[in-house]
Design a protein around this nucleic acid. Structure first.
Lengths: 193, 193
DNA sequence: CGTCATCTTGATTACGCTCAAGCTCCGTGG
DNA sequence: CCACGGAGCTTGAGCGTAATCAAGATGACG
């Protein structure tokens, strides 16, 4: 169970978007896992040292690329070893699935916090909320301070950025600015990657 | 299985450091989970909407606090429902445990990226590496660019910050500045929270 | 020895933060 | 009913941290 593989410095173990047929454990050396934005900005999710697992996915694709930092030895496991975990119906499968969702959110939030500017952060935040609420008409359940502390900004910057998006006609407000309407989704999506 | 509970706006479901006796699922309303630094800087990990689980921990303590954003209904589950998951020896337990470690790392990295200044980021990074390598003598396996892309900085800032820490006598260099020695751990730890 | 990659150092710029004031919407009490 | 006060948010002015732009230094390698 598990196949030993070796890679040289800067060699790619898998790429963002590859089918996630395997996951891995570091035996020796070190690995980086990272994501790229279309303009080349990069966020390195984590460095993986001996004993660490990486490349675990519930979805069918790798959401990161993984490269060797030097000569490394890894063990590759078939994805099948995971299927038992999130197998739909039972409660513990639901929990594992919830953990994985938290992980995916946290990892994509790292790109936002590490590499995106204020406008891009707000755009991603709004699109994200709209998707989860399944509505372009967002009744914000949280205050500006909460938004700021989530996006790594200040309330002033959040406020200014929202005003700016409104002036551009990309969003609109309702009742005391606690409700936001997405008027130009494509414009927001264009900022998001 | 599971007990329904209700909370009002700003009520605390659990606090950072509380024993993690339960985890939760949102039924209606919204929850925020957050961490604080000693000086009051806050990072909101996530907002949880109906259907989302939160408060899942493998360790014995909650690493976040959770508060209601408005009136909410949640279902609380006894922690015992998790014990089956990470139960030590078998392989799938190991995987769940690895996922949880990734999640913990990602979540604490969000605080770094969202709320810490350059010096604090470098300090945390070095302490983290030293702990994982179990050695105050760190042979960096990665380049300055990799460090920068992990910490949400530029290589210039990484370089300047390292030089600055060296001038203060907090760290030292060896061979071509790819090896770093922690000379004053307490000083680094003081920056870390 | 020359070339290139990596890193450091310096000068200047810019984005978002801080500080400060003002606005809007509430609830409360006179 | 309106005056008052406070919370939450917006707007403005000025500043500071880290980014950008630009050399220069150091070490690796052919």
């Amino acid at each position: 169970m598990g196949v030993t593989q070796m890679f040289d410095k800067e060699e790619e173990i898998f790429a963002e978007g590859d089918r996630a047929t395997c996951f891995y454990k570091v035996v020796s050396g070190a690995i980086r896992t990272s994501k790229l934005l279309s303009d080349g900005r990069r966020q390195i999710d984590a460095f993986h040292l001996p004993g660490d697992f990486f490349g675990i996915e519930l979805g069918r694709e790798h959401r990161f690329s993984a490269e060797a930092l030097g000569k490394v030895t890894v063990v590759a496991y078939r994805r099948g070893a995971l299927e038992a975990l999130n197998s739909g119906s039972d409660f513990s499968g639901q929990i594992v699935s919830a953990m994985m969702h938290s992980l995916e959110r946290a990892q994509s939030h790292m790109m936002l916090l590490g590499r995106k500017c204020a406008t891009e952060r707000i755009a991603e935040f709004l699109l994200n909320l709209a998707e989860r609420l399944d509505d372009d008409h967002i009744d914000l359940p949280m205050s500006r301070i909460d938004i700021a502390d989530h996006l790594g900004l200040t309330i002033e910057t959040v406020s200014r950025t929202l005003t700016h998006l409104q002036r551009e006609g990309i969003i609109g407000f309702e009742e005391r600015r606690r409700t936001i309407i997405l008027k130009n989704r494509p414009a927001l999506e264009a900022m998001n990657d």
